[in-house]
């Protein structure tokens, strides 16, 4: 299915958000995630199933003022 991840289109078959993070080599406890404009807390990533066309944001801590 087609997924928009951080603004870029990907073709992936990951069933859940947790599967997607593993498939794309995201690791560590410093990520924040959202699907279609809603927060997905880290504790719920393995329960959120993905659908064709979903927009996923994967953010990390960065320098800021």
């Amino acid at each position: 299915m087609k997924l928009i991840i951080n603004g870029e289109q990907h073709e992936l078959s990951s069933a859940t958000l947790a599967d997607l993070l593993a498939a794309l080599d995201y690791e560590g406890d410093w990520l924040a995630t959202a699907v279609n404009g809603d927060l997905v807390p880290r504790t719920e990533r393995d329960r959120v199933t993905l659908n064709d066309g979903d927009r996923i944001e994967i953010l990390a801590p960065k320098q800021g003022g």
């Binding site: 951080n6 995201y26 953010l59 801590p61 960065k62 320098q63």
Partner: peptide, 9 residues
Amino acid sequence: VSLRRETAG
């Protein structure tokens, strides 16, 4: 600090 898009891996 801020939050910005993380690159895969």
